[in-house]
Amino acid sequence: MSESYDYLFKFLVIGSAGTGKSCLLHQFIESKFKEDSSHTIGVEFGSKVVPVSGKQVKLQIWDTAGQERFKSVTRSYYRGAAGALLVYDVTRRDSFNALANWLADARSLASPNIVVLLVGNKSDLESQREVTFLEASRFAQENELMFLETSAKSGQNVVEAFSKCAKAIVTKIESGELDPDRIGSGIQYGNLKPTRNSASAATGRSCPCKV
C-alpha cells in the first residue's frame, strides 16, 4: 500500500433510501456529482486519506443501502464503526422522521460511543425544502450529534462533513476518551506508526474465536 496514514477509521453512511448517501461518498472521493445514480445494492465501499488536525487519517467508508429490504445485510457492517454520517434529505420529511430509528440502530449495533454527524443533504434544493435548519439543529442538539447541511450536487460541505466527524474522533483519541486499542473501536493505527501496526486491530474481525 503506497499511501501512508496515522490512523484508519471505519465510517458508516446511513439514512433512508434516496437521501443521497452514495452521492455524498462519490462527491467526497471523486469530487464530482454522480448523475444518474442508481440505488445501492447492499453496501458500497470507498476510502480516502484526509488530513485532520495535523494527522493523516484514512477513512474507510461503508456506504449502506437505505432500503428496508437490505436491513439484515447492512446491519452487519455497523459493528466496529468509529464514526457515522447520518443522512436525511432536507426536501423529504419522512427521511427526517426516520432519523431516530437509524440513530438507535447505530448506537446499539456499532457502539454507544460512535461519533455521529447529522447531515441534511440536498441543501441546493432550497425551494423544495421540508425540514428547516433550525429544526434539524434542535434534533442534533437533543441527541448530541454534530450537524451540517450539505449538497452532494454542488459539493458544499461534503468534505467538511467527513473531516469534521474524523476530527471529533481524533480529538477523542487524544483526550483519552477513545481507546484505539479496544477491539471494535473502528480505529487502527496506520503505517506511519510502525511500532504498532494494524495487525492488532485487524484481529477484531478475522479471529474465529470472536463471535
Binding site: T40, I41, G42, V43, E44, F45, R205, S206, K210, V211
Partner: peptide, 17 residues
Amino acid sequence: REEEDQYTHMVVASFLQ
C-alpha cells in the same frame, strides 16, 4: 458467519451493482 460474510455480501453487492 457474520464477521466474514459482511465482506462476502460486499463482493456480491459489487457484482450486482
